[in-house]
């Protein structure tokens, strides 16, 4: 029975299934093969990247690869720390800028928006999420970059430059193709991701929680702050981290505005930089030696590991709230 019987159905139905057992076994086997192929796909991706990275780790050791900032293909020195730094800083800027706006908009849609406004806004958010990254890149190069260069960055420099410590962030010549611009375009790109998931999560907050806070004499915002946000907190954090995951792996838009110039770390956001993804996209065609090739593949491996960790973290947080409901509604 166990080899082919579906869990669904009565015992009488199982008898019928047994009668037609062979067709079922073949069909189930085929579908299971599809599932196994997907497992195998991920395994192959990881193993191939690991295998092809071997040259670089043999060449200079994993520590020097990860934690030094000198990336000099001519002298065969490959340290990716500056790329990791650029990736993390630009993504974190994106996250810090996008999360408050996205969560605010999600709160507005669920808690405030009149019914007729909900679906146009949600539709717009879906559209925003569907725009390909290359188009964000195009827009960032020709529109956002100049705005950053001539308006926003000089403004930041004037007002925050003189402040100690904070001022370091805004040192240098505003060029509009730097870590800050990359962070801003990332913020716009991950906005719909964070917003859509936050909206789902906030919609899962039971109305009884809202009633409970209202009945104590809370204002609308106190209700949101006291009942809705705490209840949705884990899910919102998951949404933000999923946005972070998207930002970390984003390639084209970032490649087009981050400058791809410096491998040094100065601490200023006006400095051009590299992310792991943009370094790959810029240099894969220049790889003229086995070691260089392997170094580029190793960058992808590092990116894969970081993206996986961040994704797993995000999904744990989201499932802790939304997953329960959707699982229980699953048939069977």
């Amino acid at each position: 029975m166990q080899q082919s019987a579906p869990v669904r159905g009565s015992s009488r139905i199982r008898l019928d299934v047994d009668a037609a057992g062979r067709g079922d076994r073949i069909f189930e086997g085929a579908t299971k093969a599809g599932a196994i192929a997907i497992l195998a796909l991920l395994a192959i991706i990881i193993l191939l990247l690991l295998f092809e990275s071997r040259n670089i780790f043999g060449h200079q050791g994993i520590g020097q690869f990860l934690f030094t900032t000198t990336w000099d293909p001519v002298f065969r020195e490959f340290g990716v720390f500056a790329f990791i730094y650029g990736t993390v800083i630009s993504s974190v800027i994106g996250l810090l800028l996008a999360t408050p706006v996205a969560v605010g908009a999600a709160i507005y849609i669920v808690e405030y928006a009149p019914r007729w406004l909900r679906s146009p806004v949600s539709f717009t958010v879906e559209l925003l999420a569907a725009i390909p990254s290359i188009i964000y890149g195009l827009w960032a190069v020709f529109i956002l970059g100049p705005v950053m260069r001539f308006h926003i960055e000089p403004f930041l420099q004037t007002w925050f430059g003189p402040i100690p410590i904070v001022g370091n962030l805004f040192e240098g010549t505003p060029i509009g193709r730097d870590i800050l611009t990359a962070g801003v375009i990332l913020a716009i790109m991950i906005l719909p991701t964070i917003m859509a998931i936050s909206r789902e999560v906030i919609m899962q907050v039971p109305d009884t929680q809202r009633d409970g806070m209202h009945a104590l004499g809370a204002t609308k915002w106190e209700m949101i702050q006291g009942a809705v946000i705490p209840y949705a907190r884990a899910g919102i954090a998951g949404a933000a981290i999923l946005g972070l995951a998207r930002a970390l792996g984003e390639t084209m838009a970032v490649t087009m505005v981050i400058g791809n110039a410096s491998t040094s770390i100065t601490g200023s956001l006006f400095e051009p930089g590299y992310t792991m993804a943009s370094a790959i996209a810029n240099q894969f065609r220049e790889a003229d030696s086995q070691v260089y090739l392997s170094a580029i593949i190793a960058i992808a491996l590092v990116l894969l590991v970081i993206a996986m960790i961040v994704n797993i973290l995000a999904r744990i947080l989201i499932y802790s709230l939304v997953g329960k409901q959707s699982n229980s509604s699953r048939i069977g």
């Binding site: 039971p206 009884t208 929680q209 009633d211 409970g212 806070m213 009945a215 104590l216 006291g226 009942a227 705490p230 209840y231 907190r233």
Partner: peptide
Amino acid sequence: GMVFQKPNPFPM
């Protein structure tokens, strides 16, 4: 004040 059908303490 009001007490509801389903107990609704704030779980967090």
